[in-house]
Amino acid sequence: MHTTLLKDFSVSAAIAGFVTVLVGFTSSAVIVFQAAQAFDASPAEIGSWMGALGLGMGLTCIVLSLRYRVPVVTAWSTPGAAMLITTATGVPMEEAIGAFLISAVLITLCGFSGWFERAINRIPMSIAAGMLAGVLLRFGLDVFISMQTQFVMTFSMFCIYLIMRRFSPRYAVVTALILGILIAGSQGLLQIDTVRLQLAEPVLTTPRFSLSALIGVALPLFVVTMASQNVPGVAVIRASGYTVPISPLIGWTGATTLVLAPFGAFALNLAAITAAICMGREAHEDPARRYVAAIAAGVFYLIIGLFGGTVGSIFAAFPQELVLAIAGLALLGTIGNGLLTALIQEKEREPALITFLVTASGITLFSIGSAFWGLVAGGLAIAISQVKR
C-alpha cells in the first residue's frame, strides 16, 4: 500500500489537497466560529471544535481515500453551522452536544443501512452533472470578479494558468498559486504578522438530551447536512466519473461525528465544492492517481486539528482575491466537464439546464440550499417530460 502511494504521489496532487483545504477553510471557518460562539463557547471550546473537526475530516479523507483508491473528501457541514447560528438561542452547550450526537446517529443509520444510497441512485447522471456545474459556477465567475479589486495579481495568475495549461497542464494551478503569493507579498497583501502558533486542546462536554434540542437542533442539522451536503457530495463523485459504494462513506462520516461530537464536531459529511478540486485534471492527468490529492487534503486537515485556531490566522493571511482566484482556476476543468455531461443527451438537456440554473441561483428554502432544490427541479422536469401524451 505504501509503495503504491509513493508511486502515485505527485506535487500537483499535494497542491490540489492544499488548495482544497485553503478554499474549504477560508470560505466557511468564520461560520463555524460564529456557530460555536452562538452557544457561548469559550476560546478553549472554540479551539476544541476546530480541533475535533480537523481531526475528523483528516482521518476520513485519508482512510476512505486509501480504502477505495478514489478521492474521497469530507468537510464540516457549512449550512449546518449556519443553521446552528440561528437556532442556538437559549440552548445550553450540553444540550447542543446531545443534539449533535442524535444527528450523528441518524446519519450513521442512513449510511450503513443503505437507505441514502437507494434514494441517490435514482438521480440521472445529467441531472447530477448539471447540479455540480451550478454549484461550482460562482467559483469560476469569482476569478474574473476578483480582477475588479486586485487586477494585477488575479490577471497575472489567470495568464500564467493559461500558459501552463498549454505547455505543462499538471502544474498550471501550482504555478498560478506561487505567482499569486509572490505578487501578494510584493504588494504587502500577506498578513503574516497576524499568525500565532497555538496548539488546540480537546474540551470534553458531557451531553444532555432534551426534546427542544432534538426538534430545534438535531433534526434540522440532520436534514440540512444530508440534503445540502451529502446529496451534492455524492453527485460530485459520480459526475467526476468515480464508482464507489456510497453507504459506507456516509456511514463512516456519521460514525466519526458520533465519536468526536462531545469535543465539538457538530457534523461531518461528503464535500462537494472542495472535493471537485481533488477530482479534477489539475490534481493529476490520470484519474486513478487523484486519490492522493484527497489524502494530502486529509494531512492538511489533521494539521488544522492539531493547531486549531492558529491555522485560521495562517489562511487569513492570504488576501481574499488570491483564494477566490486559485479556487476558480482549479475548478475550471470540472465546471466544463460538468456542463458537457449535463447537456450532451438531448432528451435530458432541458431538465439538466433547469437543474444547473436553479442550483446556480443560490436559492435557499426552509434552510436547505440550492443544490438540493436544483435536483428537485430537474427531477420534476424529467418526470413531466416522460409523461405519455
Rank of each mutant, 00 (worst) to 15 (best):
L332R: 03
Y161V: 07
T78M: 12
A255R: 08
A381Y: 11
L268V: 05
L59K: 07
Q320I: 15
A13C: 14
A129P: 02
I85Y: 03
I314C: 12
I277S: 07
W373Y: 09
A239E: 04
A44T: 04
S42C: 09
V72S: 02
L221A: 08
A352E: 00
G134I: 02
A283T: 12
L249D: 06
I127A: 07
V32K: 07
T355I: 05
G308S: 09
M226T: 09
I277P: 00
I31E: 02
F356I: 05
A352W: 01
I303R: 03
F372W: 10
S370F: 01
S156F: 00
Q198A: 12
E94K: 00
I107P: 04
A13R: 08
G24W: 12
F18P: 00
L249Q: 06
T60W: 03
R238C: 02
Q191K: 00
R281L: 01
V135K: 02
F139Y: 15
A14N: 01
L190M: 09
Q191I: 08
A172L: 12
M226E: 07
L219W: 13
F18Q: 03
I123Q: 06
G90E: 01
A342T: 04
Q386C: 15
M157L: 11
S146L: 13
I363R: 07
G185M: 10
A29I: 11
S156H: 00
S103H: 07
A119I: 14
M147W: 10
M157G: 14
S367C: 12
L322W: 05
N230Q: 09
G185S: 06
L258E: 12
I344E: 15
F307V: 07
M83S: 12
V63H: 03
I250Q: 02
T359Y: 01
I97F: 01
G308H: 04
D8C: 00
A271S: 13
A255S: 14
L214K: 09
G185L: 09
F25Q: 04
D40P: 03
F315G: 08
P169E: 14
A297D: 02
F112D: 11
G80E: 02
Q37C: 08
E348M: 09
T355D: 01
L221I: 03
C278M: 07
T257K: 08
G305S: 06
C278N: 09
H2S: 14
L84R: 03
V70C: 13
F222D: 02
I314T: 09
W115N: 11
L6E: 10
L199V: 10
I215R: 11
G188T: 08
I326E: 01
A176G: 14
S28C: 10
Q386G: 15
A327S: 12
A255E: 11
A296K: 05
P202H: 05
I123K: 05
G188Q: 06
V376I: 14
V223M: 14
A52D: 03
A81T: 09
E321Q: 15
M164A: 13
R349T: 08
R122E: 11
S77G: 13
L197C: 00
A239I: 01
S247K: 11
T274N: 10
H284F: 12
F139D: 06
M147H: 10
A296S: 15
I192E: 02
T149A: 15
I178Q: 05
I192V: 13
I344M: 09
G251A: 01
I344A: 12
I102K: 05
F158K: 00
C278I: 06
M279I: 00
G298F: 07
G379R: 08
I335C: 11
F158V: 11
S168C: 15
R389D: 14
L53Y: 00
Q37T: 15
M83L: 15
